[in-house]
Design a binder for these strands. Sequence first.
DNA 1: ACAGGCGCTGTTATCGTTAACTAACCCGGA
DNA 2: TCCGGGTTAGTTAACGATAACAGCGCCTGT
Lengths: 324, 324
Amino acid sequence: MQDVGRLAQVSAMTVSRVLKDDPGVSEATRERVFAAVDRLGYRRNQTARSLRLGGSGMIGLVVTNLANPFYSRLALGVQEVATEYGFRMLLSNSDEQADREPGLIDGLIDHQVEGLIVVPSGSRQQHLAAAMRHVPVVLAARPPAGLETDCVLVEDFHGARGATACLLAEGHTRIAFLGNPPALYTGAERLRGFWAAHEEAGIEPENALIRQGLVDAATAEAATLDLLRGSAGPTALFCTNNRISQGAIRALYKTGTTLPLAGFDDFDLSDVLGLPLTLVSYDADEIGRQAARLLLDRLGLQDGDPPAPRRVTVPTRILRHGIA
Amino acid sequence: MQDVGRLAQVSAMTVSRVLKDDPGVSEATRERVFAAVDRLGYRRNQTARSLRLGGSGMIGLVVTNLANPFYSRLALGVQEVATEYGFRMLLSNSDEQADREPGLIDGLIDHQVEGLIVVPSGSRQQHLAAAMRHVPVVLAARPPAGLETDCVLVEDFHGARGATACLLAEGHTRIAFLGNPPALYTGAERLRGFWAAHEEAGIEPENALIRQGLVDAATAEAATLDLLRGSAGPTALFCTNNRISQGAIRALYKTGTTLPLAGFDDFDLSDVLGLPLTLVSYDADEIGRQAARLLLDRLGLQDGDPPAPRRVTVPTRILRHGIA
DNA sequence: ACAGGCGCTGTTATCGTTAACTAACCCGGA
DNA sequence: TCCGGGTTAGTTAACGATAACAGCGCCTGT
């Protein structure tokens, strides 16, 4: 800034003023400064600004696996709103390792993020409470456990119940449940929906057809193959997320079986598989957008009146493919 | 840091030393400091450190669309290597709008990234030259045009030629080409490969079957439907990327047609579609990893001997599905 | 007895920017 | 002529951390 000032024959302070669009700089000076900036290719040092201004203009997002389109869309949603509010997004990926999450969060706080959006990966949320001592935290896709904070959820129960009901309405009574670990909120909640639909239909789900703790497409494929081998196999499948659906579909394909499948999350090409699919679809972008809005609204507030924790729900809708 | 120091009865300088793992602090003091840090939940301000240390410890990545698994995997690869080198990754997404790229790059430079990895979205690279005045830049997936810098490429020509040759070897002579805009390097190069395979087989590609400028699955679907309607339609398809393949597959599905399809990029569930597919697959993560390595190696070097621009190529391999 | 070294800790100045204050100047009105 | 007020530009002191240096006590060797 000194250098720019020298070239434009003004002090660094005046350069700062020009770059900040401060009124009270004469037009002539302004032009000289801009010319000097251009000529030197000068860019303001955002690090120094953040230090002086006391705000980095960044929010942090922590997800478990960017390669899953659910999370990358969520990230895009967050970024869209952050940009709108003049914030930048700092992204961290825990690679499915829950024990890395606290470290990532600490790192983000070190970088002076002004708020955090977290998709909590484990069931322990102690580190989140610690993070909240520094900045506001908004949870996405899973609710707080023992914390007082905002969150954005999907209609997990409602969606699972609806999709299961579709299968039951078609007369299925032996529906297998392929679920992620029950310790995860989504896993538990979607199972609850599955169960509720059965109760409403007056049908008792079979324990032998319920498999939980599946973590990726491979484990889901194995579990499905196992179910199909059984003597009293299922006549339909319910999967709690996109990766599990994909694993199950692979198992069906390999064994040449065609079974109706219901599941959470839409995925690419679901409409051209030619399988009878019932998918609970929702807008992952929207989860990100809502979470960002909750966070940034909170940041925008003058301190003094921290609003009560809010909970926003993103709606689901049911897609049906390949059904006559 | 003052506060921590007060609680531990030392100066801020000593706190700094403890947190920096500086030798020359007595064990007793060290413990007192850690205790105070814990009690206050203190975290070092990375912004201030960056300013003083003269390096932010961040590199920037610019991609066009995180929702495309190609880019999210690439980002994961970059992050993996960055973490290894003790760097953080700052991600920007241009949302397919090439004119937003310069602004994103400026933003990253303002945030004091020490280097940039860019997947250039347009054909103009003027802004990249400007960026190089500040930090080293590595290009990914597309080569520099009029710049002297490192880049990481895929075997575009080789892969396209190989996949096309597979189709030709099966006797196809009327292969449609569904390509992205020819102004993009990958578009041009993959067409060149397509063409080369034909020449080697002594077959003249038909201009009527060549469609370029497809930008997403929807335009690809429309182009495919158009080709299929024609009187002398193709007997096989070649697609230059995952989104185009998906659009083409949707068109085939909607018209109930089964044609062999070859294309760049593998995608989820490609193996269970039951279509005869020939896919040029490669590791998008690896592009990111290599790009990050080129960049970070360059950063690690003492200044004085900037190495000549390097060019790394990531290999492709051909996957075949549903082929008897 | 005393120089010299080591181990530990504090002081000062600095990174680049900007808020708050101060200074110089010009204008019009009394 | 002199004063108040506006306009424009410069000076100073921070933001939080740390490199470089200085200081203090204690030990060792001669």
